[in-house]
Design a protein around this nucleic acid. Structure first.
Ligand SMILES: [Mn+2]
Ligand SMILES: [Mn+2]
Ligand SMILES: [Zn+2]
Ligand SMILES: [Zn+2]
Lengths: 143, 143
DNA sequence: AGCTATATTTAGAATAATTCTAAATACAAA
DNA sequence: TTTGTATTTAGAATTATTCTAAATATAGCT
């Protein structure tokens, strides 16, 4: 098992798929690498204001849109609640614990290939698969 | 295999979990039993105006909310698009064909118990599971 | 280094789906 | 019939997000 570099150490590239990683984009991305609790655009805006008092909410939205387009972030939606964002690019679902309101990533069990489980015609191309779960974790479960 | 009664024949109960099935609620429900293409509240509003010129959009929203609360309908969300509604109560996912824009139900393969495939603590209670897929169906596939 | 074209950020206005409000209507029970 | 409650209705309000247009930053030149 290789040791992952911590987000503060991790160097974020200066370019990504042809677009510049600006100060603002880097800060948005860095925050999402650090905070794995799936913040909303507004949450991110509030957090970043400490380090970048001049950043605007429109910029946070712009950065998130760009980073999602370039597939370094995922947008996560629970019903019609404000969108949340996630820097985990592994295939995973999202679990909302109704007791705590906290959202966490959910991996699939070993050897499960989720895309093979749907009754779809052969040669169907799956571009994107979103799985969201609402439920209640057992007590004292930090996962 | 038993013959299912057609929606126009099917009698819709006059009460459901303590609330009255009013004219408006019945029409909304009837439409969703007939049209399995997952219409939005606005789609439903436009369709129903022919049979019920006096119905309001607020009422369509109110009816949908009530019917979802009482679990005779499901609300279906693709990212941040307007919510869609579905009268299919079997456990199923939703597939959006990016070529046609059409949404269809997707069943799971035989013997797949989707809730068992997530890496969650034992005794986690799953209240609700939403699965949405975007992709492209092979040509000439009506499913 | 300055110059210039383009990309990005920003504040604030606009949009659009949904929810809310309060008055009118329908209905069930007495 | 009367009366209390549920429901519908039109229109206003809300809110997450997108759009607009002006200001700023940056990369690639000279
Ligand atoms: Mn749902
Ligand atoms: Mn998505
Ligand atoms: Zn995630
Ligand atoms: Zn469905």
């Amino acid at each position: 098992m290789s040791k992952a570099s911590s987000p503060s150490t991790l160097s974020i590239p200066n370019e990504i798929g042809g677009v510049r990683m600006t100060k603002q984009r880097k800060e948005v991305y860095r925050l999402l690498l650090e905070k794995k609790d799936h913040p909303t655009a507004h949450d991110i805006f509030i957090s970043l204001q400490e380090r970048m008092p001049s950043i605007s909410l429109a910029t946070v939205y712009n950065c998130l849109e760009t980073l999602v387009e370039h597939e370094v972030l995922q947008q996560v939606n629970f019903d019609r609640e404000p969108s949340r964002y996630c820097a985990n690019l592994k295939e995973h679902g999202h679990f909302l614990d109704e007791k705590t309101g906290k959202i966490q990533d959910v991996a699939f069990k070993k050897d499960v290939n989720i895309k093979d489980l749907f009754d779809l015609p052969e040669d169907t191309i799956i571009e994107n698969l979103d799985i969201t779960i609402r439920g209640i974790l057992p007590n004292n479960s930090t996962h």
